[in-house]
Design a protein around this nucleic acid. Structure first.
Length: 291
DNA sequence: CTTAACGCCTGAAGGC
DNA sequence: TGCCTTCAGGCGTTAA
């Protein structure tokens, strides 16, 4: 589900809510997300620790702890973090004003609950159970970061840098842009949108893009991601921020999920869909010069 | 080294 | 109504 803008939206929400909070205890309802630790080790790792910061690299969420260790989480398709503030008024009676919905601890797909010392909670839900949470002691998180490519916003990423990388790839440009070791953060939605905006043929071999195309493509990748972040991401079916709000970028989608609709740019042909590496690519055959 | 298929999971939607 | 197939914001592994 989530790509860079959705992860950024989640991270911003977490920054505002959990920094400075100390984990009193953790309840693990499903150990599958714990990729490199078992339940007892994970509990010992996190209990008593205070979150000092929450960062993002690519599509990863990086939780920093007060002892220099880290948690690194990936949402994959359906992972989500939901923050629940201290429930006020439970002693004096039910709240009357509309507050955030409370999440029952037996709700569907709940995997992990972090209980903070102040009474607030962080829920981790994941319907499909693809999401992961890894633990890293001290600075070991560097190794994980080294395995992912730079964000498209990083300074080293220039049109010349991109062109150089693309020259080494004979594969079609679309699947190449999904390779997180090249550039991190793009997923199926924003790749389709950026290629459309840049008017690049998704099936064109990556090594055949010229300087102008690479420059335009990088500019549109950044534009699309920036705008999507501003809109708090895209909600197709179930993406939600940590306070369970939907994103708003879906209203601005030009091609993703628009098969059969008239192209908003040229107005002359309908949007097509074709599989590349088992994944749907949406495009305008006219605007993007596809045969 | 790159590339492409498969597997991991659950649930929704569409065809018959 | 029910059954079967396909599809889904991702990516690690494996085999060629």
């Amino acid at each position: 589900m989530p790509e860079l803008p959705e992860v950024e939206t989640v991270v911003r929400g977490l920054k505002q809510t959990i920094i400075g909070k100390t984990v009193e205890s953790v309840k693990i309802l499903d150990e599958k997300p714990l990729i490199n630790s078992k339940v007892p080790e994970f509990s010992r790792f996190i209990e008593g620790r205070r979150f000092t910061d929450v960062l993002r690299f690519g599509k990863y969420i990086h939780f920093l702890l007060d002892n220099g260790s880290s948690l690194v989480a990936h949402l994959r398709m359906t992972g989500k973090y939901i923050y629940q503030d201290v429930l006020l008024g439970t002693e004096a009676g039910p709240r009357t004003e509309a507050g955030p919905p409370t999440l029952p601890e037996n709700s569907a797909h709940l995997r992990i609950i972090f209980y903070f010392t102040d009474g607030s909670k962080l829920f981790y839900k994941d319907m499909r159970r693809f999401g992961t949470i890894k633990i890293y002691r001290d600075g070991a998180v560097i190794e994980e970061k080294a395995r992912t490519g730079p964000d498209p916003f990083e300074k080293i990423v220039t049109p010349a840098w991109l062109l150089e990388k693309l020259k080494k790839r004979k594969q079609a440009i679309k699947p190449v842009l999904l390779d997180q070791k090249l550039l991190s953060g793009l997923g199926n939605i924003y790749v389709c949108e950026a290629l459309f905006k840049a008017q690049v043929n998704p099936f064109l071999p990556a090594d055949r893009l010229d300087e102008n195309m690479a420059e335009k493509l990088l500019a549109e990748i950044r534009n699309v991601l920036r705008l999507a972040i501003k809109k708090n991401g895209t909600t197709i079916s179930d993406f939600r921020s940590i306070d369970e709000k939907s994103g708003e970028f879906q209203a601005m989608l030009q091609v993703y999920g628009k098969e059969g609709e008239i192209c908003r740019k040229c107005g002359s042909v309908t949007i097509s869909r074709r599989k590349q590496e088992q994944r749907s690519t949406y495009y305008c055959s006219y605007c993007q010069g596809v045969d």
